[in-house]
Write a protein that binds this DNA or RNA. Structure first.
Lengths: 198, 198
DNA sequence: GTCTATATACAGATAGAC
DNA sequence: GTCTATCTGTATATAGAC
């Protein structure tokens, strides 16, 4: 009984290590350039053993996406504790800017994954990254709506789009200050927004 | 003599066909998922023959990037014939929106290429896509400067960043209307900009 | 210059011992 | 559950006939 529990605990621990390693390595190297051996090494799990936890490489990609999605939930969950929706949005922008060094080296985890998965001709996984982005859009639109703005969806699109754009440029130019400059502009923009009268 | 010229013409024609095919296929499928056989088939050139024109796959990627860069030059060249820099910028945005269906399926050619090449750990080619984006930034900044705006570089960053962001979201959500909505906002923004007094 | 056949290398995945 | 050894497929690149 105790042994069985320990084995199970160790097993899911390994699964968790593999998931975390996948999220990290796939972000850094991309899906196509990452081998199962890379992930296994990073998770300190023998290569052959990977298949006990994930039947295919795609399942590891999916697990990595779920991990990024969970990180997003954590962030928005923390921001939800702020009372003013404008502060929540500004907190989101600040969190992005804080990640500028990572963005300069590897871009946005979800965004770069979405770009890569969209290159697939088969329909495998290519919608999954889009779903994570859509959840970010939804959360953002809710904040704009709570603020009393007339077109919350358009504002959300503008903000998330700006984030993906500045991440891509920060990465392509390898220049974290891109993130700082655009981040400051976004903060000013958020401050300037006035809810409709009435 | 005539034969030699014909051979040379055919040869460079094949090279040109390979370059064009590379630009197209690499945009659609991405670098890592594209095989030399894919490009050769699209160019109607036998696989083994590719190596006569390009020593490595990376050289084909480089040629594809140069092709995209040339397309950008064509576009900015046409826009340069407009007298008002504001009209040039609005023309740029309109050109982007016109490509929305392509963007929905494959994203921005240069942007998605940049994302993929930035995943490389070796320093091969990963700066080349960034250079193309930088040239777009420079051209755009020149227009803002000619307009008499105080911080042309920041405005350029905002515009190009917005383009890359809306391309990525259009692609990830497979929704061309993202491009239309953001494009209209950018046009309104450009119209609203007033040069500093004096 | 053109093309076929093939060398080489390495990835994803599986079989099966422990 | 864990791990090694290996099968199988496929991609880049080359050798060399034509």
């Amino acid at each position: 009984m105790t042994n069985s529990v320990n084995r199970r605990a160790r097993a899911s621990q390994k699964r968790q290590r593999l998931t975390a390693a996948a999220a990290r390595v796939l972000h850094e190297q991309g899906v196509e350039r990452t081998t199962l051996a890379d992930i296994a090494r990073e998770a300190d799990v023998p290569v052959g053993n990977v298949y006990y936890y994930f039947k295919t490489k795609d399942e590891l990609v999916q697990a990595a996406l779920a991990e990024h999605s969970a990180h997003l939930d954590e962030l928005t969950g923390r921001l939800d504790e702020l009372t003013d929706p404008r502060d929540r949005l500004k907190g989101l922008v600040s969190a992005w800017v804080d990640q500028r060094e990572t963005a300069a080296r590897h871009g946005c985890p979800t965004g770069t994954l979405a770009v890569e998965l969209d290159k697939r001709t088969d329909g495998t996984l290519d919608a999954e990254a889009g779903a994570v982005i859509r959840r970010l859009l939804d959360w953002t639109a809710t904040q704009f709506r709570t603020l009393g703005l007339p077109t919350p969806d358009d504002h959300a699109l503008t903000l998330v789009s700006a984030y993906q754009g500045m991440s891509l440029l920060t990465n392509a130019l390898r220049d974290p200050t891109v993130m700082t400059r655009e981040g400051e502009r976004l903060l000013r923009w958020l401050d300037s927004l006035k809810p409709a009268e009435g």
